[in-house]
Computed example of a mutant assay.
Amino acid sequence: MSHDQGIPVLDLSTARQPYGSFSPEFIEQLRYATHNVGFFQITGYGAAPGQAEHLLDVIRRFFRLPLEERMKLDNRLSPHFRGYTRMGTEVTQGRADAREQIDYSPEREPVSEYPAHQPYWLLQGPNLWPDESFPELKPAAMEWAELMSTVGMELLRAIAVSMELPEDYFDEPFRDSPAWMGKLVHYVGGVVEAAGDQGVGSHADYGFVTLLLQDQVGGLEVQPPGVKEWLPVEPIPGALVVNLGEMLEVATEGYLAATIHRVQAPPPGVDRYSVPFFWSPRLDAVIDPVPLPPELKAQARGISDNPANPLLASYGMNMLKGRMRAHPDVTERHYPGLLNR
């Protein structure tokens, strides 16, 4: 494990020993990264040769399409919060972000009937893809999602072992129909006046495991527990940046860290591309407290729930709340009745 200004780098190809169980050395590195920093980078995660570079190239070319082509995928057309978000219309901390993006998730049939207390089923449905104008995008993005699902599950199994739990401890909530979410993101500096230098405002992710592919421009900054300054996450070609979400932090009473992070907008005229992937359980998954061994429980920091944005045990409700906050225009168009709930 090497350190890059405090951000550990782990090689996932060394995670398991020849006979299949996790390597104690890798588990020790992972335990340090997930408890002390909440962010790390991984190499050796099984991408095909050139796959990461190809995906970034495909995204770059998609965002060069004329705006009218991109707007055919306008996420306001999707009741499932999928598709294209125009520059400066996603909101973090109440302020516009200097990015445009595609949001996508598993391709499934919409759920037409569900209990009133489970409105999160509204999130399930089809994606919006530029099948006619740019057919390369869907296969590249979905193949990446398949790889990231494998990586996300492997990391969760290693995290379980690092907390002295059975390797399959987190398997059940992800079984059959995980509700992962992918984004294809383009940042441009100096275009969204309201954003200033905010590419994405400071926040913690609310789910489980985030896997980020970033290009070489940089701009991601993190604030590990107990650290006052912002640490840059310097790009490593082809590596993934990994961080944990608040549901894992809450379930472990703060032993695992859901670290605050932000993205600084690139300089005016500079483009930055990234692919965040949120490895997430089924929409109806409810996450119970994790039984920590005494020596780890003693190191748990506890949790400081944000009264303005309380975290719920139901993954689906957290995801719906997050989508509604990020895309108020979609919410207003399709679900005005949910706004005051």
Results as ranks from 00 to 15, higher is better:
residue 13 S to H: 10
residue 30 L to A: 02
residue 63 F to Y: 15
residue 225 P to W: 10
residue 81 F to R: 03
residue 7 I to D: 02
residue 224 P to Y: 09
residue 86 R to G: 11
residue 241 V to T: 15
residue 180 W to L: 01
residue 138 K to G: 05
residue 25 E to V: 14
residue 314 S to E: 12
residue 58 V to Q: 01
residue 327 H to Q: 11
residue 97 D to T: 11
residue 132 E to F: 12
residue 335 Y to S: 05
residue 158 A to G: 15
residue 138 K to Q: 15
residue 305 D to A: 12
residue 183 K to C: 05
residue 76 R to G: 06
residue 234 E to M: 09
residue 314 S to F: 02
residue 234 E to G: 01
residue 252 T to I: 03
residue 134 F to K: 06
residue 216 Q to P: 02
residue 42 I to T: 03
residue 279 W to A: 14
residue 317 M to W: 08
residue 63 F to M: 07
residue 101 Q to H: 14
residue 209 V to G: 00
residue 68 E to Y: 04
residue 78 S to P: 07
residue 303 I to N: 10
residue 60 R to P: 01
residue 248 L to D: 00
residue 20 G to V: 12
residue 143 E to M: 05
residue 200 V to H: 00
residue 5 Q to I: 10
residue 66 P to L: 06
residue 98 A to K: 04
residue 224 P to E: 08
residue 160 A to Q: 08
residue 226 G to P: 05
residue 79 P to E: 12
residue 9 V to L: 14
residue 294 P to H: 07
residue 278 F to T: 02
residue 222 V to I: 14
residue 116 A to C: 08
residue 146 E to V: 12
residue 97 D to N: 15
residue 45 Y to V: 03
residue 161 V to C: 11
residue 258 A to K: 00
residue 299 Q to H: 11
residue 75 N to D: 10
residue 92 T to E: 08
residue 111 V to I: 15
residue 8 P to D: 06
residue 308 A to C: 03
residue 22 F to Q: 09
residue 43 T to A: 07
residue 44 G to Y: 08
residue 272 R to P: 00
residue 293 P to N: 11
residue 116 A to R: 13
residue 216 Q to V: 04
residue 44 G to F: 09
residue 86 R to Q: 14
residue 288 D to Y: 10
residue 267 P to S: 14
residue 200 V to G: 00
residue 7 I to P: 01
residue 171 D to R: 05
residue 228 K to Y: 01
residue 260 I to E: 07
residue 260 I to F: 11
residue 271 D to S: 13
residue 47 A to Q: 13
residue 141 A to T: 02
residue 170 F to R: 04
residue 48 A to Y: 08
residue 241 V to Y: 03
residue 249 E to M: 15
residue 43 T to I: 15
residue 271 D to L: 11
residue 324 M to Y: 11
residue 283 L to A: 06
residue 240 L to F: 08
residue 182 G to M: 01
residue 201 G to I: 01
residue 234 E to I: 09
residue 69 E to F: 09
residue 267 P to W: 02
residue 126 P to M: 12
residue 232 P to C: 11
residue 236 I to L: 15
residue 217 V to L: 05
residue 190 G to W: 05
residue 18 P to C: 10
residue 165 L to F: 06
residue 203 H to S: 08
residue 38 G to N: 02
residue 193 E to M: 05
residue 13 S to D: 15
residue 115 P to C: 10
residue 187 Y to F: 14
residue 48 A to N: 12
residue 161 V to P: 00
residue 251 A to D: 01
residue 31 R to Q: 13
residue 262 R to P: 07
residue 163 M to N: 00
residue 178 P to K: 03
residue 1 M to T: 10
residue 186 H to T: 03
residue 259 T to Y: 03
residue 93 Q to S: 15
residue 41 Q to V: 07
residue 305 D to E: 14
residue 335 Y to V: 00
residue 324 M to W: 06
residue 54 H to P: 00
residue 236 I to M: 13
residue 80 H to R: 07
residue 187 Y to P: 05
residue 255 Y to Q: 05
residue 336 P to Q: 07
residue 95 R to K: 15
residue 50 G to T: 11
residue 310 P to L: 08
residue 188 V to C: 05
residue 315 Y to H: 13
residue 1 M to V: 11
residue 27 I to K: 04
residue 255 Y to W: 14
residue 141 A to P: 12
residue 94 G to V: 07
residue 65 L to C: 10
residue 36 N to C: 08
residue 208 F to N: 02
residue 79 P to G: 13
residue 271 D to A: 12
residue 112 S to A: 14
